[in-house]
Design a protein around this nucleic acid. Structure first.
Lengths: 342, 342
DNA sequence: CTGTTAGCGCGTTCAC
DNA sequence: GTGAACGCGCTAACAG
């Protein structure tokens, strides 16, 4: 209907429009705009002015058709909250550098059919590579080996060791947490975790036990698994305090669990951190910064995860593929729940 | 370096590969795969089988080059948390229908330079349209009238009335909230809000006053503005209870503020909702579902916002543009903080 | 019904 | 230095 007679100003200028306005051929215009040296400075200036005047932006499609690369990568996520995807996306954008690469974000909502569908859509748009972000740390099915572009798995590794996966070192995270609590002078440490079917909770617990064992210590009572909720944190803390009133630190499986734990401590008049120190995992600002006191937590460095994934993907696109699992370390963010005054 | 010698299986099958394998011309193959009627069933089957065998996926770039449309829209956001963008993205994907349209998500991080940059990147990739999501409800600068594609502004309206904006009816939201509290039998209602420089807080307050006035009531004390944090909720609640112990309901500017308010109420042994009912805005699950009791809140219907935006954008792409501001209504989600047993 | 031709917008040889 | 010609993968016209 409105194809030819488009009245809009900025319709879409093509390279030949620019060339015509500058009085040169399309080839010359192309060279001029792409900074090739085979063109006189004066001519180049004329072309550039014409391009500016028409607010010309090169058609990346046509360019990609020719070059085989589109300067576009797909980011496939299953993370409804955007808790992981957004920081990872930002890290990836940073690593790719402004303007060079654009990122397609698709949310599969944990549905493998939808995921297959998005993969096809992205491949059809000729993305140069794929980043797959999982919502839990357990291995997930591979997209397959016969894809026409490189794939990097992030947070959730691929089940196929031939794929490249970038994950968080959750065992190390558990170790880090305990080491921090010990360096705060705590020795009677309990661990209230989340859903036991998550690899993350098992790994963090393992790291915690290792770090304690290295000092000849062990956890007060067993690890208490439950769910990743404040409600579980409250319930578990009540039981813990009844059974082991001597506890002087509680490591929590997530910041949300920690919030529940802190509520119970306050209600039972245990001072945080003087009587009992509390720590969480994930460093989710909305939970850690506004609690009383602010919550010490282990940050998963999602932005860095995204940056590294982008770098690896870039290398693979350039013909330097990698495989295996690369685990990145975490970072303790100290706040008032373990260190007074922070 | 690895251009010609790509060893990967699924490199990239082109339509002519399919045609050759099926023993037909590319044109016939195209017709067969696109379901045109001008092809014999047997031939079609042969082509489809060949396409399957080569796991052929049509090059959307080449197709878009010809059609002028790419089946791609850009979603430009400034929302670092993904709190709005993700649900809006999901709504848009739903409305566009699976497979027809893909969505590019770019995060401008509130930086207008980065935003301009992303706009150019998206336009260069020939998106068919743009959805711009703001992080607050105040009007934002227009992207300009001379863009080659339609634009729909979501949540934050454009300053230019010629643009089309889809927003949340925050005045109505404030009214809804008060009406719910009144229907729960409350009459001595206070309002603890967030940052007063946000349009949302002013509008919600206005709606609240209107609904009260309609019943011949008014707020207990002035609206208490502060920040969108639990900390402010705690501070404001303490002051409120000291000055107006008779209060029987507190409407909070956000779920986070409400969490702070509820903490103080519990510490002062005011039963929720029996003594004091509490409500929030935004219906942010992680806050509303796990508080004690679960928090009644006003849901902003972000998915619907995304769906409507996608529909309007689709219409505009089809040559049926619209302009002005379209306000969508909100929805009360009732939980235990206002209705016992919920 | 099927094949041939042309062209979408661009970059890259080559000749001039 | 500059321009004409070709091709990337695909679809819309026509021919056959």
């Amino acid at each position: 209907m409105n194809d030819g007679a488009a009245p809009l100003k900025g319709r879409k200028a093509t390279l030949s429009d620019v060339a015509r306005l500058a009085g040169v051929s399309v080839a010359t215009a192309s060279k001029a705009l792409n900074g090739r040296s085979q063109v006189r400075a004066e001519t180049r200036a004329r072309v550039e002015e014409a391009a500016e005047q028409l607010s010309f932006s090169p058609n990346a499609l046509a360019r990609g058709l020719l070059a085989g690369r589109t300067g576009t990568v797909g980011l496939l996520t299953s993370d409804l909250e955007g808790r992981f995807s957004i920081p990872i996306l930002m890290g990836a954008e940073d690593a790719f550098g402004a303007g060079k690469v654009a990122v397609f974000l698709c949310d599969a909502r944990g549905d493998s059919i939808r995921e297959q569908h998005h993969v096809r859509a992205l491949l059809g748009r000729r993305v140069d590579g794929l980043i797959v972000v999982g919502s839990r740390t357990d291995p997930r099915p591979s997209l397959g080996r016969d894809l026409p572009v490189p794939v990097v798995y992030v947070y959730a590794p691929s089940e196929d060791p031939e794929d490249l996966s970038i994950i968080v070192d959750n065992v190390g995270a558990g170790r880090q947490a305990i080491e921090h609590l010990i360096s705060c002078g705590r020795t009677r440490i309990a661990h209230i975790s989340g859903d036991p079917t998550y690899g993350a909770s098992q790994e963090r617990a393992q790291g915690a036990r290792e770090a304690l064992a290295a000092r000849g210590l062990e956890l007060i009572g067993d690890v208490r698994f439950g769910s990743w909720t404040e409600g579980w944190g409250r319930a578990a803390a009540s039981m813990l305090l009844a059974q082991h009133p001597e506890v002087d630190a509680i490591l929590c499986g997530s910041d949300q669990v920690a919030r529940g734990v802190m509520d119970v401590l306050r209600e039972q008049d245990r001072k945080i951190p003087d009587d009992v120190a509390v720590m969480g995992f994930d460093n989710w600002e909305i939970f850690t910064s506004h609690s009383r006191p602010p919550l010490t937590s282990i940050d998963m460095n999602f932005e860095r995860l995204g940056r590294v994934a982008a770098q690896r993907l870039f290398a693979a696109i350039d013909g330097k593929p990698a495989s295996g699992v690369e685990a990145l370390d975490t970072r303790v963010v100290i706040r008032g729940s373990t260190a007074p005054g922070h």
